[in-house]
Design a protein around this nucleic acid. Structure first.
Lengths: 194, 194
DNA sequence: GTTAAATTACCAAACGATTGGTAGATTAAT
DNA sequence: ATTAATCTACCAATCGTTTGGTAATTTAAC
């Protein structure tokens, strides 16, 4: 009976799936336990508290994005435009199909005034994202413009994802990405002519 | 103590204030009662349930926006550009200073998979907003483009508000509005030249 | 290789606190 | 005296968490 061990990754993935559909306050320890094939008391064999579990989920998600998605921006075997395209593609997959998506925003808003520990991780995710975009745009814009552009683009994508969810319209994000890519190409062209 | 202690408007305003900072699931009937200067049991003299109260708050908020904010777009004493400017100004006030703000988005995301009645009202709010923007852009763009532009702009503003909250940066929305206004003026210029 | 101790994984039950909601008594204005 | 508004007291259910206990497995001494 001490064999079928639940490994950490599975625990986090199962828990994320529940948190994602019910939110933080909307999810009970019972829900989490069920999703992991355990009774609620047994969950405490793996975790210290509901809050610490969520914090671990958030952190894992952020680290995943940083090391598996954002890092594409620094892949020197690709042209800058191709890197942006890779990022856009991955973002579309993530937000439209995968578990996770705009999860970080949802939880960030829901717990903003009650669990500061969450806010910190979520903030750092967005900072990382903005920095990634800033780097990519530094190829076609000067420092200050690249920064502003990066901040604006992250907001733009998040807004699209949001409307996509609220209005059940899957095209939102795709159109936004297409617009961004087209615009980037135009910026590259202008840069060359200068 | 049988005086009409609490009028409907005050009840809704007080409740909104609590819901706004703690979310739907994060707010208890006790919290709501306290905010209204009552004991929990007394709340049920005014409302049928926690859910019905929230639904009333959401509906009142949507109706307020439609009749007091969005209607500016149809004010024929103003030039289209001036109407857009009015809308932008009001939006900035609402999102930055007032209670309410992106409340509808937060609740929409938090309760998307648990309380469909909320989703309906929230959806209609965004549809109204999009329609308003579409009308304003029909002065400078053709039908199809105006629609796409409207959808995009609402997403853009929402994204800005979101980042503003998550990153505690009040400039986000202001910059977005300035960009929109400038672009609208440019669209007007292009229209004239054609 | 056998065996006993230590550890792991889990369950069933219960904890005190809090949840949304109800009933009946009490208060105060008309 | 009537009636509307509020309080007090309570309910059943659920919350996150802790407990006591029991198999299954791993470890380590022989």
């Amino acid at each position: 009976m001490a064999k079928p061990k639940l490994d950490r990754k599975t625990l986090l993935r199962n828990s994320l799936s529940v948190f994602k559909t019910m939110g933080y306050n909307g999810t009970s320890m019972n829900d989490l336990a069920k999703a992991n094939g355990l009774l609620k008391g047994s969950m405490y064999h793996y975790i210290e508290s509901k809050e610490s579990l969520m914090l671990e989920v958030l952190t894992a998600l952020r680290d995943h994005y940083v090391s598996r998605v954002f890092n594409k921006a620094f892949d020197e075997t690709l042209q800058p435009y191709q890197r942006l395209k890779e990022l856009a593609l991955r973002a579309e997959e993530i937000f439209v199909f995968e578990e996770g998506g705009d999860f970080l925003v949802n939880i960030g808003l829901e717990t903003k005034n009650s669990v500061p520990a969450f806010t910190q991780v979520i903030k750092s995710f967005f900072q990382e994202w903005i920095n990634t975009m800033k780097y990519l745009y530094s190829f076609v814009l000067d420092e200050a413009d690249a920064k502003e552009k990066a901040e604006f683009i992250v907001a733009e994508i998040e807004g699209s994802v949001l409307m996509m969810k609220l209005l059940d319209d899957v095209n939102y994000l795709h159109r936004t990405n297409e617009r961004l890519l087209k615009e980037y190409k135009e910026l590259e062209r202008q840069k060359v002519y200068k």
